[in-house]
């Protein structure tokens, strides 16, 4: 399954996470603070990192920023509720997704899987997620074999969400992708386009889910109706 690095200052939390991860076949290494976490990451080259945002000393965000200077290992952030701004900050510093404490182990493992299934160099202009297929070359999208009539903006939004299918994308990240040159209040325009996009996607196994205060996630219902 690969190597996972846990960076958390609570020994009990680390033990539990280790149990959960090992039961899934991960090889686990741990660190109790940021600097050691960075050393472990350099030494063990993990396939995925679980990072607690509430680290003492060099905080979670700083650790993440320094990790991102030289590594693009997928990072899942562990946070508590009511930390929306910190979560957004973490995501924009390069975290791939987050779970909120207290979290279920099923949710944790699912998120870990999604953030590892990804990126790398793309060799085709096509991206797919469930029943959704996007052709980035021709700017065409189809869902369940049926073409979607999207405006260029809607296509652009859908493409960044599809590329990160199952993962959270912050509002800011979408805005930067869609309008590299800042508009007056792009967030406002974004909301309008997303509401149109949702109407076009309808209820066909692909949903744009909003996480208030953070951003959007493209959710794929696995078993699409036959």
């Amino acid at each position: 399954m690969g190597k996972a690095l846990i960076i958390d200052d609570e020994p009990q939390m680390r033990r539990l996470l280790r149990m959960v991860l090992e039961s899934r076949g991960y090889e686990v290494c741990e660190a109790d603070e940021g600097l050691r976490g960075l050393q472990e990451a350099a030494f063990h080259r993990p396939d995925v990192v679980l990072l607690d945002l509430g680290l003492p000393g060099m905080g979670g965000i700083e650790t993440l920023a320094r990790l991102r200077e030289w590594s693009d290992v997928p990072v899942l952030v562990l946070s508590v509720r009511d930390q929306e701004t910190v979560k957004v900050q973490a995501l924009e510093t390069g975290a791939d997704d987050y779970v909120t404490k207290p979290f279920g182990s099923a949710e944790l493992l699912a998120r870990l899987e999604v953030i590892q299934r990804r990126r790398g160099p793309r060799h085709t202009p096509e991206i797919t997620a469930g029943a959704l297929k996007l052709d980035l070359l021709r700017h065409e999208a189809d869902l369940d074999g049926e073409p979607l009539r999207l405006t260029p903006t809607e296509f652009s939004i859908l493409s960044i969400l599809t590329e990160h299918a199952g993962r959270i994308v912050t509002q800011n990240q979408i805005v930067k992708h869609v309008w590299p040159v800042q508009q007056s209040d792009p967030a406002e325009g974004l909301r309008v386009h997303i509401s149109h996009l949702r109407r076009k996607l309808g209820d066909r196994g692909v949903r744009v889910v909003n996480e208030p205060g953070i951003g959007y996630r493209l959710e794929i219902r696995q078993a699409s109706a036959p």
């Binding site: 939390m13 539990l16 509720r81 207290p102 279920g104 182990s105």
Partner: peptide
């Protein structure tokens, strides 16, 4: 305080799931 109170609860809940 929030962190101190929520951490043990998270641990209990994660352990229970196990």
């Amino acid at each position: 305080v929030s962190h101190e109170l929520k951490t043990p609860i998270t641990i209990i809940r994660t352990a229970l799931e196990g």
